[in-house]
Computed example of a mutant assay.
Amino acid sequence: MRLFDFLSFFDESTMVKIIDNDEVLMECKVGEVTQRFLNCRFLIKSYIKNGALFVHTEVKQQDDMLDELE
């Protein structure tokens, strides 16, 4: 699932940590996540811990995204 679609289920003021390979890439409110992250990141897993939404993601290239549609 695209990160954009997943985060649309949450209030814009929800605290979120976006993680890739166990590295926190961004820590902010859902409404502050940049378009750069929303466009190419896909959800791997998510959970809530200490009141924050943790979202593990991966980057998919344009070719990978097209393969999924076929």
Rank of each mutant, 00 (worst) to 15 (best):
residue 37 F to G: 08
residue 42 F to S: 02
residue 25 L to Q: 09
residue 17 K to P: 12
residue 15 M to T: 07
residue 16 V to W: 08
residue 19 I to L: 03
residue 26 M to S: 09
residue 13 S to E: 06
residue 21 N to V: 07
residue 29 K to S: 10
residue 40 C to A: 10
residue 34 T to V: 12
residue 29 K to L: 02
residue 23 E to K: 11
residue 32 E to F: 09
residue 22 D to R: 08
residue 42 F to C: 01
residue 24 V to Y: 02
residue 39 N to I: 08
residue 16 V to R: 02
residue 20 D to M: 11
residue 30 V to K: 00
residue 32 E to I: 03
residue 21 N to G: 15
residue 14 T to S: 07
residue 28 C to M: 09
residue 36 R to P: 14
residue 13 S to M: 01
residue 19 I to N: 01
residue 37 F to C: 03
residue 39 N to W: 11
residue 42 F to E: 10
residue 33 V to T: 01
residue 34 T to R: 15
residue 40 C to N: 12
residue 36 R to C: 12
residue 13 S to H: 00
residue 19 I to C: 04
residue 35 Q to A: 12
residue 24 V to E: 14
residue 20 D to H: 15
residue 35 Q to L: 14
residue 29 K to A: 15
residue 34 T to E: 09
residue 13 S to G: 05
residue 38 L to H: 10
residue 17 K to D: 07
residue 35 Q to C: 08
residue 33 V to W: 12
residue 42 F to K: 13
residue 41 R to Y: 05
residue 16 V to K: 01
residue 22 D to V: 04
residue 42 F to I: 04
residue 20 D to T: 12
residue 37 F to T: 03
residue 41 R to Q: 06
residue 14 T to M: 05
residue 25 L to K: 14
residue 19 I to Y: 12
residue 27 E to I: 07
residue 16 V to F: 10
residue 14 T to F: 01
residue 41 R to A: 05
residue 14 T to R: 14
residue 36 R to F: 13
residue 40 C to Q: 15
residue 36 R to T: 14
residue 21 N to W: 05
residue 40 C to F: 15
residue 31 G to L: 07
residue 20 D to A: 13
residue 34 T to K: 13
residue 23 E to T: 12
residue 33 V to R: 08
residue 19 I to R: 06
residue 18 I to A: 02
residue 38 L to I: 01
residue 15 M to H: 09
residue 41 R to D: 03
residue 15 M to Q: 11
residue 31 G to S: 03
residue 15 M to A: 11
residue 27 E to A: 05
residue 41 R to K: 04
residue 38 L to N: 02
residue 35 Q to Y: 13
residue 22 D to E: 11
residue 20 D to V: 09
residue 19 I to G: 02
residue 14 T to W: 04
residue 29 K to P: 11
residue 20 D to W: 08
residue 18 I to D: 00
residue 25 L to T: 04
residue 28 C to P: 05
residue 29 K to H: 03
residue 13 S to Y: 01
residue 42 F to V: 05
residue 39 N to Q: 08
residue 27 E to W: 01
residue 13 S to Q: 06
residue 38 L to E: 00
residue 40 C to P: 15
residue 35 Q to P: 09
residue 27 E to Y: 00
residue 27 E to M: 05
residue 30 V to G: 00
residue 35 Q to V: 10
residue 33 V to L: 04
residue 37 F to A: 08
residue 17 K to M: 07
residue 28 C to K: 04
residue 27 E to D: 08
residue 14 T to G: 05
residue 42 F to Y: 09
residue 32 E to M: 09
residue 29 K to D: 12
